[in-house]
Design a protein around this nucleic acid. Sequence first.
RNA 1: GGCCUCAUCGUCUAAUGGUCAGGACACCACGCUUUCAAUGUGGUAAUCCGGGUUCGAUUCCCGGUGGGGCUGCCA
Length: 481
Amino acid sequence: MPEVRTRFAPSPTGFLHIGGLRTALYEFLWARKNNGKFILRIEDTDVKRTVPGSLENIVQTLKDFRLNFDEGPILQSQRLDIYFKHAQELIDKGHAYHCFCAPERLDQLRKQQQENKQPPKYDKHCLKLSKDETEAKLRANEPHVIRMNVPAGQRISFADVIHGQISVSSDDLDDQVLLKSDGFPTYHLAATVDDHLMGITHVIRGEEWVPSAPKHILLYSFFGWPLPQFVHLPLLLSKTRKKLSKREGDVAVKDFLEQGYLPEALLNFVALLGWNPKTEQEIFNLRELTEEFSLDKLNKAGAVFDPEKLDWLNGVYIRSLKVEDLFARISPYLIRAGFELEKYPKEFLLRILLLEQARLKKLSEIGERVKYFFSDPAYDPEMLRWKKVDNRQLSESLEIAKKIIINCQFPISKEEIQNAFFAEIGDKDKGAILWPLRVALTGLEASPGPFEIMDAFAVLPNGKEIILKRLNTAIEKLFQS
RNA sequence: GGCCUCAUCGUCUAAUGGUCAGGACACCACGCUUUCAAUGUGGUAAUCCGGGUUCGAUUCCCGGUGGGGCUGCCA
């Protein structure tokens, strides 16, 4: 058995997107699972579409997800002589030919064919050129491409690991351009040549490549090369069941990371889109994925990317974090929200995080959630109202809370402060005091409980004053309304 | 249009020639609770349609329908 070798072969045309991440993951897993090699190859054969910085982003993203590659990045743009040589070889064997047709002619041909309801195909016009004619044009430096010479009337079939036997008639195949007029290869030539030269055993890629796979099969046979295994992954779909793409909103992995999705969660989520372990386990780390992964558990049908389930999964991962780890990861978001962390004791910040940890779906939510810890909240006094009580009763409740706090000796434990309140409330309605108290502290309809919040404030030297100040503010608001 | 391909709850999916068609997200109800979250319990919800094969088909076959992909000197 030869060593398993897979490759991730993105084109550097922007930020790595979520579909690419899944492809890379599966390729990585399959290589690791078999103690093989995972190779990064950059398909930068379209000069016009290449975006500076993409390569760095791809490398960095793979690193962020611990999808370490063993070889590469290999840039196709630095291997032009190799592709040229192979294109030449095909010409020599009669499997390819020079084409001098201008783009205008091709456009017109296509238009005509479409009007006649014929499939757009090159008409092999330049194949009719004599050897001398071709030579003359080449000597005259006429712009040209090299096309593959697809034979007529052949059945081309290949076995796909996921889909089984796929077969098409060569009559449905176009004489694909292999080498462009700028000397760069097209995907079809470059990928095929490289996959062979790099000893790729499993060509794992998106299903959008199925229609051109027969062309690649033809190329392999032209060269006399053995076929690798083809694994065409089901597509990742948007909510409208279209291929996930930039047009359909957020797909850049970088954007997800910036919103505060944890790489572990994102990877776990994406792993389950098109693959599943056939058990009921849903939470997987990279090591577990490597153990469980296999190609025969891959699905055929496209999978809709459901952000709600990702949110849930991210929450699961956030909750599983040690609070110190959460702090390290979430600090940038707190700073971005304008909180001057250095002004607060670490203990205070950790307590705050502990309060919100179970509530977070993504790290970016933290600023909005905890801002009342850093500045006095603004809110509509009506929010203070518990059930239907009137303002007099409300302010009485707040006064009671005030009195209890005043009598408390800070610093104080959560239990002590809680006991103090419950002793005062007795068997009366707890909400009558606790609801307005909590709103006075947070300005929010939904938040952690008042004891937890006061417990966090208690860490601050002026914690008691802050609490009393907010109670006073609440009482004033009631009188103003 | 042509070629290729896919089809189980709204979504991700499991399973089987005979099951109450299972799990997860979301949703709903209840419990816990001052609110929210987390958590616990329960619930609503699916085999695209039509023919075959078969004692029996969601599963196998054929045909339809629907979706998707491709149809570039993009990848």
